[in-house]
Structures are given as structure tokens and as C-alpha cells.
Nucleic acid binder design. Structure first.
Length: 258
DNA sequence: TTGGGTGTTGGCCA
DNA sequence: ATGGCCAACACCCA
């Protein structure tokens, strides 16, 4: 689930729930989500510190504390929620950060495909992000065109490859390609300049509305609203949508208008 | 009950 | 460089 818009939503949750507050207690309920750091070291590193303005790069959330930085990745099922410490701890609440008597930030994740890392300094942050391409929300049109034209594979593979462009997942890629009327299997390097511009425009437009929504909503007028229909029809032209596999992922597109 | 599917990533192999 | 397959994990569904 979590793609750029979701993670941007989690960044806002962190900001409104915990920014400026002191981390009073870290409670690790499941060490399986900790990567390269023990519960002990995590607590020693951040308890007593204050959450500052959180940042995001692609699908990574950077929880800064003025010292070490907590790096969060949400995999397919993770989320960040603001709770009351007395709220019932749910089965998938893996790490709890108590930041006030009445506030507790929770890293909740069903599948534990990713988790939390602790970066002691900026070089460690950079090391964890070194394989990430430019953020999809921040990339310039020029840079976008440059990275796409350098790719031999399909445009969908390029859009979802985090080392090319950071932030887009399977759903967003399908939605953006549908809006830009481009087949997911088109070779990225074959795109005409006009195609590339259109793709960039629709990427920005789609990101803007999904970030505002805090997710990629299954709207009726969007492709997202139909990908799970039994016999899906294109909300733009009515033609039957096609399913296939591109970049190893379930892909939905309209053979008529894409 | 079992096998196959799922919005994440990275590693290995050809 | 690229694509395919698998694993990590927990759950759903036929």
C-alpha cells in the first residue's frame, strides 16, 4: 500500500503528533522490525531526544531527533498512527513512541517486510539512501527526461524502480501511465519528447491529488477504482481493461486509449 | 487444508 | 544493463 502519498501522509502524522515533543519512552513490541539496531541501542539513542521536522525521500520517512535519525520504511502494509498511550495495543503495533502523557506514535505493520533503521549521523543517512533515485515529487522535468532516456527497459519498470525515481509504486505507476495514455510496456528510451512531457505532467498532477488525499484513492473516474473489478472497463473509453505482468507486477491498462 | 495471490525491497542468476 | 525468480512476512481467498 504505502507509496509516496501514503508516506507523505505519515510524515504529516509524525509532524502533528510528535514534532517538538520529547521521546519519553520507546517500546519495541516486536524486534523483527528493527534492522541493524537492538532495542537497547535504539532506546539509548533516542529516548530523551526531541522529534524535529520529519523528512521524506521516496518511500522513506526520516524521523530526525537533532541527533540520530530514525529511518522508517513501510513495505506493503506499514503505517504510522497517532494514538493515546491507553489505546489498546493492536496485534501489529510493532514499536511505540510515547511523546506525551496523552500521545503515542505507533509503527504498525502487518507483514514486516521492511521496518526501522537507526542512522547515527548524516553519512549513515546518506548510505541508507544511496540507491535511491531523485524523489518523484521533487524531480525536475529535465532530470526526469534524462533518467528515462537512459533506460533500456519498459517505462513502467523505470517508473517503479526506486533507484531510477523514488516514490512510485505499482498502483501509482499504472494510474499515471493510463492518464498519460502510454502503454506500460513502451520502452522508456523510445518515448518522444512530447510523451515524456505528458508523462511528467501527469505524474505531478497525480501526485498532487494523491498527496492531498494521503493515499491513492480507488476513485471511480480513476484507473485505481477499477483494477479489482471482475470485468474491469476503462473509465475513460469503456473498453475492457487488460491485465498482464510488467516488471514482475500485476499491471492493468487500457489497450484502447493507452 | 493447501496452494496461490498481494500496493514492499534486495539478492542471485542468466 | 535487464528481466526473471525467490525470499522476507502475514494475511486472504478459492
Amino acid at each position: 500500500m504505502p507509496e509516496l502519498p501514503d508516506v507523505e501522509g505519515f510524515r504529516k502524522v509524525l509532524g502533528s503528533c510528535a514534532k517538538g515533543r520529547i521521546i519519553q519512552r520507546v517500546d519495541v513490541r516486536d524486534t523483527g522490525v528493527l534492522h541493524g539496531v537492538s532495542t537497547r541501542r535504539l532506546r539509548d539513542a533516542v529516548e530523551g531526544r526531541r522529534f524535529t521536522e520529519p523528512e521524506r525521500h521516496g518511500k522513506w520517512l526520516l524521523a530526525r531527533t537533532g541527533g540520530p535519525t530514525l529511518m522508517l520504511h513501510f513495505g506493503m502494509t506499514g503505517e504510522l498512527v497517532c494514538c493515546h498511550p491507553d489505546d489498546m495495543v493492536e496485534a501489529h503495533d510493532r514499536v511505540l513512541f510515547t511523546v506525551a502523557r496523552d500521545r503515542q506514535l505507533r509503527y504498525r505493520d502487518q507483514r514486516k517486510l521492511q521496518g526501522l533503521w537507526l542512522a547515527d549521523d548524516e553519512s549513515e543517512v546518506a548510505r541508507l539512501l544511496e540507491r535511491q533515485g531523485p524523489d518523484a515529487m521533487a524531480v525536475s522535468r529535465k532530470e526526469f527526461e534524462d533518467v528515462l532516456s537512459a533506460r533500456r527497459g519498459s517505462v513502467k519498470t523505470a517508473l517503479t524502480d526506486q533507484s531510477v525515481l523514488a516514490g512510485l509504486g505499482n498502483l501509482l505507476a499504472d494510474e499515471i501511465l493510463w492518464r498519460a495514455r502510454l502503454r506500460p510496456t513502451s520502452r522508456a528510451s523510445d518515448l518522444a519528447e512530447a510523451d515524456c512531457r505528458r508523462l511528467y505532467t501527469h505524474m505531478r498532477r497525480t501526485l498532487r491529488s494523491t498527496v492531498a488525499a494521503g493515499c491513492v484513492p480507488p476513485r471511480d473516474s480513476w484507473l485505481t477504482g477499477h483494477r479489482d473489478d471482475p470485468d474491469p472497463a476503462c473509465p475513460r473509453c469503456g473498453h475492457s481493461l487488460r491485465r498482464s505482468r510488467v516488471a514482475g507486477r500485476g499491471t492493468v491498462w487500457c489497450p484502447q486509449c493507452q
